[in-house]
């Protein structure tokens, strides 16, 4: 299978200072990859390098062209813009051309379906800065998924969510994987919510290693 994303002997980090070295990885379409590691280990560094926000210090990061989306770790939405939830979600489906048309009926339909699936029914016309942290996190998931990305990066997407909401988010992500997306998600806590992932990468001591899949204890339905 043609890889969607490849790291070739890459050193990744910030301002010329490497956080991760010797990264050699390759991912195909339709995979759900979990990146696990302690706080400060380099998860965000790896994800931002994967999606092109951070150029590699050495080596190369290769991506096939396609639609990309990011659910950021920190709620990055600026509160001074009085944007509604729907406006924020639809901003995920904007044409990259400034002359492009505004989101059509099909995109709106998809946005409403995502809001329903994320337990945000009835929130479309609420201001996004009037929501709770967990609600905002789900809005950002909807904004990413409405793009129908080929490469989806989720940086601790469940950190502000209860177990039920977390499972809703991850089942939507799983559905994107079934449609052929490559998904990289980070967590600092590998628990049963992540039972559906295909691969696990563990970051420790500046090195990325392939790790064991999480085991089901049968506690979840």
């Amino acid at each position: 299978m043609r890889p969607v994303l490849g790291f070739r002997s890459a050193a990744l980090g910030h301002s010329g200072r490497a956080v991760l070295t010797g990264v050699d990885l390759e991912f195909g379409a339709g995979r759900f990859v979990l990146v696990e590691g302690a706080s400060g280990s380099g998860k965000t560094t790896l994800l931002h390098s994967a999606i092109g926000l951070l150029p590699p210090i050495s080596g190369a990061v290769e991506r096939t062209p396609g639609v990309r989306a990011l659910v950021p770790q920190i709620d990055a939405l600026d509160g001074a813009h009085p944007a509604s939830v729907l406006e924020t979600v639809l901003s995920g489906a904007l044409s990259v051309h400034l002359s492009g048309s505004s989101p059509g009926a099909e995109v709106r339909q998809r946005a409403f379906e995502l809001l329903d699936a994320l337990d945000l029914t009835g929130f479309a016309d609420r201001r996004v800065d009037h929501l709770s942290g967990g609600q905002r996190q789900r809005v950002l998931v909807a904004r990413a998924l409405v793009r129908q990305p080929d490469l989806l990066i989720l940086d601790e997407p469940t950190s502000a969510l209860d177990e039920r909401s977390a499972r809703r988010v991850l089942s939507l992500v799983r559905a994107a994987v079934e449609r052929g997306a490559l998904v990289l998600a980070a967590t600092h806590r590998l628990d049963e919510a992540w039972i559906e992932v295909d691969d696990v990468l563990r970051i420790a001591g500046g090195v990325v290693e392939v790790a064991e899949l999480p085991q089901s204890t049968g506690a979840l339905p």
């Binding site: 999606i51 926000l53 990309r68 600026d78 944007a83 904007l94 990259v96 904004r143 990066i153």
Partner: peptide, 13 residues
């Protein structure tokens, strides 16, 4: 709006 609200997302898009 997107560029003002979340420039990182704009770049990713």
């Amino acid at each position: 709006l997107l560029v003002g609200q979340d420039p990182t997302a704009a770049r990713v898009h």
